[in-house]
């Protein structure tokens, strides 16, 4: 029996900013259609990991493979071809201030796929409806939206090109618990409808439990635990136990200076 090619494969990934070594030999494999959530404290390198896979940062060592293809140091047109597989919901939504909501959602279709504007607008309105936003929102500017609406528009933009892989960077950060639940449900719904592989990063455990098939814990630049979401409460890993229970005491030492 042959082993299926993983959708995303990270091997011995190292990233450093000067003397600050953020990722120190990270290994992670994600199968097609799987939903993996990476948890870890602030500054543990979760966002850096996503940016490495997207080619926004270059690792100093290691390999990144997408569908078996080495994409570690791709650039230019080759990188843009690979990016066609990805959708990304940024932490602050990262909507373009100068464009109305519908053009934000349709941006990848118009600029990346060269779709005619009327068609792209029709798809944008469909995607907005999919995330629970009406056509009345389409002409508004990002500055006129609430935090929750921005996340929904960001989600609509992430799924507009029907990507094979979707990344979610802290999808519920800054939202009230109810809106957080709404966003999580939308993420699960979109993922199910598209059949996409998803990789999310968060430190919101409630959110992680709702959207993950599998959870991996990142600490000091490495994955220190990786397992199905159902087993996280009995992981037997002291780092995971401390993190999911939110305890100050334990092996994870936060850099806190008392006044």
């Amino acid at each position: 029996m042959t082993r299926a090619t993983p959708k995303i494969e990270l091997a011995d990934l190292h990233v450093a900013f000067g003397a600050n070594r953020v990722l120190q030999g990270l290994d992670l494999t994600i199968a097609a259609g799987e939903s993996v959530v990476i948890i870890g404290g602030s500054g543990s390198g979760k966002s850096v990991l996503l940016k490495c896979i997207l080619g926004l940062l270059e690792p100093s060592r290691g390999r990144i493979r997408i569908d078996g293809e080495d994409v570690t140091r791709l650039s230019g047109a080759e990188r843009q071809t690979v990016m066609r597989k990805f959708g990304m919901l940024f932490q602050g939504a990262a909507l373009f201030d100068s464009l109305p909501v519908w053009e934000n959602v349709a941006f990848g279709l118009i600029q990346g796929d060269k779709m005619a504007r009327p068609n792209a607008r029709r798809i944008a309105l469909e995607k907005l409806a999919q995330v629970g936003l009406g056509a009345d929102v389409a002409e508004l500017g990002p500055a006129e939206l609430s935090g929750g609406m921005k996340k929904r528009v960001g989600l609509a933009r992430a799924i507009a090109r029907q990507p094979e892989i979707i990344f979610f960077d802290e999808p519920t950060t800054g939202l009230d618990p109810i809106m957080g639940d709404v966003i999580d449900r939308l993420i699960v719904k979109c993922r199910t409808e598209l059949g996409a592989t998803t990789l999310s990063i968060t430190h919101d455990m409630a959110s992680a439990r709702r959207i993950a098939d599998r959870i991996a814990m990142l600490y000091q630049g490495r994955i220190v635990w990786d397992g199905p979401v159902a087993t996280i409460d009995r992981s037997g890993n002291p780092y995971v136990d401390q993190f999911i229970n939110g305890r100050a005491e334990g092996p994870i030492q936060m850099a806190v200076s008392a006044a």
Binding site: F86, F96, G112, R157
Partner: peptide, 13 residues
């Protein structure tokens, strides 16, 4: 605000 990163992820230089 990561809008430049967003451009790259949307296949736009």
């Amino acid at each position: 605000t990561e809008q430049i990163d967003a451009l790259t992820t949307l296949s736009t230089s």
